[in-house]
Simulated scan of single mutants.
Amino acid sequence: MPDERIDTLVIGGGQAGLTMSHRLKQRGIAHLVLERRRIAERWRSERWDGLMFQFPNWSVRLPEFAFPHSDPDGFSDTASIIAFIEDYAAFVAPPIRCGVEVTKLRRDADGFLAEIAGGSITARNVVIATGPYQRPLRPDVLDGHPGLFQVHASGYKNPAQLPDGAVLVIGAGASGAQITDELVRAGRHVFLSVGRHNRLPRRYRGRDLFWWLAEMGVDATPVEQRGPSRLLPVISGAHGGHTIDFRRFAADGVTLLGRVAAACSRSRPISPATSPMATPTTRHSSGSSTTSSRPAASIIPTIPWRASACPNRRPSLRRCARSTCARSGSAA
């Protein structure tokens, strides 16, 4: 028998779970929010020190709750976003229990049965508000390289965390691009593995990209209706907000690579599906792979990986004996 019964159970105490609680309270629907750790936990423990939110301050908002700022066109750091979510939680005052993890969820005769440590809860409705990237994607393609230092983006904090040497960043989305920029500014030589992406300007005709997307209604359009490409634009909120231009990265000394497809003994095959862009730099090839006299000593994956068999005669990135690998992508 379940220990508790509730009309609606909300799993997750981040901004999505808090917003759902806000709306349920307005409708008088009895509910309970369970958060396995703390409110806004991923913002607290799974963000790097120098992260700047890529959305301009004017666009940051939650239902009936404005984001406090002095510069509408500026960008906020992690601490400001955490404080905002905490203030919103105080405003909503949700019926929430922190430190309670749902370990299993299944249907039963009364709706759903959620198992928690030491008990269970039956709910007629369940809202899963854990976000799209609940677990870091840690592929096994590099498990055979025990001397290679690896860290996922959720565990990356700053350049000083990595051993000396070059860094391979796998994935060039918002996280990968901003981490690459940070590492370059710290004096590291960076290899950047680039997959499919949308390249759009940070600003156009004096307006931020998100202003234009909002005017076109893209932010209110379901993902399934956005056309063949659902990729988010690669832009950054760091250093006042700027366009991510991979050609500029190459000009600044970043070695651009294609998509990592597998890891084999002492080499790392680079898929020809995404060819590096041709640039006037001695450490860059215009083909589907790039090798350098300065092999990577750190790796930060930032996109989902799929392990594959080691193909023969594929272009590869050579690895030195002292290597580091940092993964920076979730299953975003």
Score class of each variant (00 low, 15 high):
M1I: 05
P2V: 06
E4I: 02
T8C: 08
L9F: 10
G12L: 04
Q15M: 09
L18P: 07
I29L: 15
H31F: 03
L32P: 07
V33K: 00
E35K: 01
W43L: 04
D49W: 03
M52L: 12
P56D: 10
P63S: 09
E64N: 09
D71I: 03
P72W: 10
G74S: 07
D77E: 13
T78S: 09
F91C: 01
F91H: 08
P94S: 03
P95K: 01
I96V: 12
V100S: 08
R106N: 12
L113S: 13
G118W: 01
G119F: 08
I121F: 10
T130N: 07
T130S: 09
Y133K: 00
V141M: 14
H145E: 07
L148K: 03
F149A: 15
V151P: 02
N158P: 13
P163D: 02
A166F: 04
L168D: 01
L168N: 00
I170H: 00
I170S: 05
G171A: 02
S175T: 09
S175Q: 00
G176Q: 00
Q178D: 08
D181E: 02
E182Y: 01
V190F: 04
L192M: 07
V194Q: 04
G195Y: 02
G195K: 01
R196G: 08
L200W: 06
L200F: 09
R203N: 10
L209F: 14
W211L: 10
L213T: 05
E215C: 09
V218R: 04
T221Y: 09
P228Q: 00
S229Q: 05
V234E: 02
G237A: 09
A238C: 09
H242F: 14
R247D: 15
A250K: 01
G253Y: 05
R259F: 11
A262I: 05
A263Q: 13
S265Q: 12
S265H: 13
S267I: 14
S267N: 11
P272G: 15
M277G: 14
P280M: 13
S286P: 15
S288L: 11
T291S: 13
S292C: 12
S293P: 14
I300F: 13
I300V: 14
T302A: 14
A309Q: 03
A309C: 04
P311A: 00
R313T: 00
C320D: 12
A321W: 00
R322C: 06
S323M: 11
T324F: 12
T324M: 10
S330G: 15
